[in-house]
């Protein structure tokens, strides 16, 4: 390689900007530009006449949207903490000295690497009311299982349970990493003091895992909104829109109904919520490592 001479060297600032060019080119192309055109598009009606606020007016009255929003909020608010709590529990259990630890870790993590659609296919069968595995197992105990996916009250919880099953192993890895960063002396100190397991977890492990929890919560929250693949395979949002989720609704409006303008209005609302959450979480992240 030719030796570089310093006079031709770019100033650091220019060099830094050059480094950012590829990332920002793509960010602009696939985030900024679509964001702007989403705003514009949302102000036009279906025949591209406008500007008008009709889409937003419709949004206020759209019951399907309201259902999808409520469903998605329920879905996020319940699956994220439950997945993380289970992941933490699993990590604490599988971090200990234990015969077959590697095998168990692999087993718990395995669902995490499966595509959501594959998971959905598997569980679609498990959840069948009359010929499904879960109800068959319940039948051994004399319990007549419900119609998991066919009951408007059960369909969302059933889907949540499935996603928790899929996601917990993934976040368990995050927590295993977090646990490894905790000095084992701390556990031993607790052991010597006779601190109970639960107390030790509550007073030591849990607070020390807080940074991991915040990080994982961001990922989990994003997943709870963007992983809607199972709706396509299992319920198509039904019955009675009881399992309709935001992204699935956006997809239906935009592509099945060919109404991108209204889809844009919904997208913007979702983005607004997401950005607000992101800002909130980044604030928390900023404040997270007081004691490090």
């Amino acid at each position: 390689m030719k030796p570089r001479t310093s006079p031709r060297r770019l100033p650091d600032q220019v060099f830094a900007y050059a480094l950012l060019v590829p990332a920002f080119a793509f960010l602009v192309l696939f985030t900024v530009k679509p964001l702007v055109s989403t705003v514009v598009s949302s102000l036009y009606d279906r025949r591209d006449e406008g500007p008008t606020l009709d889409n937003y007016r419709l949004l206020a009255e759209d019951e399907v949207f309201r259902k999808a929003l409520v469903n998605n909020l329920l879905f996020s608010v319940l699956t994220v903490p439950v997945s993380l709590a289970l992941a933490m529990l699993l990590a604490v259990l599988l971090q200990r000295a234990l015969k077959g630890k590697a095998l168990l870790r692999a087993g718990v993590f395995a669902p995490a690497i499966l595509p959501v659609v594959a998971v959905a296919v598997i569980w679609l069968y498990f959840y069948q009311p009359n010929i499904g595995v879960i109800n068959e197992v319940l039948g051994w105990f004399g319990v007549t299982g419900p119609d998991w996916l066919g009951d408007t009250a059960l369909v969302l919880p059933s889907l949540m349970a499935m996603m928790v099953w899929k996601e917990a192993g993934f976040f368990m890895i995050f927590y295993l990493a977090g646990l490894q960063a905790i000095d084992p002396e701390l556990d031993e100190a607790s052991l010597l003091e006779g601190t109970g397991r639960f107390t030790h977890f509550r007073r030591v492990t849990f607070p020390l895992l807080m940074p991991t929890t915040l990080f994982a919560a961001i990922v989990a929250l994003a997943d709870s909104i963007k992983m809607v693949d199972f709706v396509f395979v299992m319920t198509q949002g039904g019955p009675d829109n009881a399992s309709n989720l935001l992204l699935y609704y956006i997809y239906r409006v935009t592509f099945a109904q060919h109404w991108p303008q209204y889809g844009a209005a919904i997208s913007l609302l979702v983005i607004g919520v997401l950005v607000a959450l992101a800002v909130l979480q980044i604030r928390l992240l900023d404040r997270r490592i007081h004691y490090r």
Partner: peptide, 19 residues
């Protein structure tokens, strides 16, 4: 008939299974 959703896709299986 059930008051839960009778699924289009699996109703044939239910018929075949004697449900």
């Amino acid at each position: 008939a059930p008051t839960t959703e009778v699924a289009w896709g699996t109703s044939t299986d239910d018929f075949l299974a004697g449900t």
